[in-house]
Amino acid sequence: MAIQEQETAAEPVRLFRINTGSCNGCDVELAVTSAVTEFDVEQLGCRYTESAHEADIVLITGPLTVRARDEVLRLYAATPRDRITVAVGVCPVSGGVFRDSYAVDGPLERHLPVDVNIPGCPPRPLALLAGIRQALEVRRARRAGEPIREPGDRKQPAADNFPARGRLSFDASACVDCRMCRHVCAAGAIRFEEGEGGVRLTLWHNSCVFCGLCSHYCPTGALSVTGDWRLDHPAADAFRQVERGEVPYQPCAGCGEPIIPAAPQLLHAVFRRPNPEIEKLKNLCPACRQRMSIGVPRR
């Protein structure tokens, strides 16, 4: 006698991908989460679907090109109304390196509601899984009418010791305000603001493409690449994903004019062993420095 087995396994949550004109990095990594056992979305009870109307979670990659826009919006409109939308990589959120192009019509949020962001360029598969897990939580909370549970432990699994290029970290005490980092940043992720008390650096992780060029060219090591790649967050928090630091002004020891003194890291890079004479010069503004070393300010 055949026994009708009761359906106990939960229906898989269906993931649907839309490429809005990406460089294919995020898409190739998403393909990995459907092909490689270690990173398979099945471990989260998910499965990829090829039909928009089955989508429970929509994963969107790319900066949204003008040419792709209509097709993307058509596809998105075909997905169910209660789908959760995930922006994969920094492109949909800020345009990444492609921002300010005539051919890009982002950010995505101007056209459709986004629930979760997964920064990265591209995000590594574990970051994708963490982001999808966050999307599942948003979905659960929304269905149950409950608030979203904060992800408890954002620490990375201990076994994962890859030195991945993650979030940039800023040490204001080493910064000399040369702004080389901003000069080399292709994504325009770094901003300097001159305030009352000092110069403030703001680095937005949703624009940063984690190339580390800023840290490569930083003469004092004020900017450094960390291994922290767990950056997924609710889209509402997009603008809170920043690294900030203020380099305080100090009065010039000569005339009292506010200046950014040379950091010890810079003096060590330039002089190897700075002598007391140099130490004295570093607290002076350029004009006072000239007066002290050559007697008169140069015209």
């Binding site: 300010d100 051919a103 000069h183």
Partner: peptide
């Protein structure tokens, strides 16, 4: 054209390092 991001325009608005 779907993935046209205007690269020719973008490279001229970025310096050699960017």
């Amino acid at each position: 054209g779907q993935v046209h991001r205007g690269m020719e325009h973008l490279v001229m608005r970025r310096n050699l390092y960017q």
